[in-house]
């Protein structure tokens, strides 16, 4: 227990990790609690088309006269929960399949790896576009589709690490002592491959932010009167010359969220690999 606590402290003491964590939490907090502080409802028409920023509306008005600040405050929830859910589902499903492949070997292993090949031939965005355009823009469908696009990478990663672990002595010892397979899997193998998987979760989160805001930008995500950062970029793009703040606000927040998750994930990855090196 104390070993865990001390390595957690080492990880948190890295500057990049702390910076990434603060940035991520700040954007998540902004997205979750923002709607409570919005001066107007995000669908209220309160100003003129592409009205310039004023004292009452720090970011001005958008393409049909919504208050941009209110929409920025309201438009983060969808990106945040959907990218978190997509990355988490991809991680869970991918790890399960990867471990199954590493454990089962032979035919099952080959079949699983071969199927990841199939999905990895589709550029992520194109696979998601293909499915979402046919099944509709229901939030859960989008989340699941993004998870399907990311899962093969997790399968490859978890299978690769697990193959290195399955043959190690402590697993063989547990098998000889007659522990049930599920116990070996969850108590012996999973903890020792958890760190790289969590790092990958953070990287997938960055990708998911880009993918989901990109989908919304293309018009396949959150549907119009609702507020969403990606959607807002698309809506106000035509007014970029007159009212750049309406695009700049959501652009900045998407960029900060992606940057925060990426710094966090890679920082943790770097620190933990340094800890591993010191151990060996």
């Amino acid at each position: 227990m104390s070993a865990h606590a001390s390595s957690l402290r080492t990880v948190l003491s890295a500057r990049q990790v702390r910076f990434g964590l603060v940035l991520t939490l700040a954007v998540v907090g902004f997205a979750l609690f923002g709607p409570l502080f919005a001066p107007h409802a995000h669908t209220d028409l309160v100003g003129i088309t592409y009205g310039r920023p004023t004292a009452g509306a720090p970011l001005g008005y958008d393409y049909i006269g919504h208050d941009v600040w209110s929409r920025v405050l309201a438009g983060g929830v969808s990106v945040v929960w959907m990218s978190l859910a997509a990355a988490a589902i991809a991680l869970a499903a991918g790890t399960a399949l990867g471990l199954l492949a590493a454990f089962a070997r032979r035919r099952v292993d080959q079949a699983i790896v071969w199927f990841t090949d199939v999905f990895m031939a589709f550029p992520d965005l194109i696979l998601v576009l293909l499915i979402v355009s046919m099944l509709g823009r229901d939030h859960w469908i989008i989340v699941l589709t993004v998870a399907v696009a990311f899962a093969p990478g997790v399968v490859r990663l978890s299978r690769g690490i697990a193959l290195g672990v399955v043959n190690q002595e402590f697993v063989e010892a547990a098998e000889m002592m007659g522990y049930p397979r599920s116990r070996i899997l969850f108590r012996e193998i999973l903890p020792s491959i958890l760190t790289p998987l969590l790092v990958h979760l953070g990287i997938m989160l960055t990708w998911a932010v880009g993918m989901l805001s990109g989908l919304a930008f293309l018009g396949y995500g959150v549907a119009p009167p609702a507020a969403d950062w990606g959607l807002m970029i698309n809506e106000n793009r035509a007014g970029l010359l007159i009212q750049p703040a309406a695009v700049f606000g959501p652009v900045l927040l998407i960029a900060l969220f992606a940057l925060g998750t990426n710094l966090l994930a890679e920082g943790v990855g770097r620190v933990t690999s340094r800890i591993e090196e010191r151990k060996s």
Partner: peptide
């Protein structure tokens, strides 16, 4: 480089337009 790696490509594109 972290900046360009993390920030989604289309956001980079919009920034370049700006």
């Amino acid at each position: 480089v972290v900046l360009f790696k993390a920030v989604p490509g289309f956001v980079i594109g919009i920034c370049l337009v700006m």
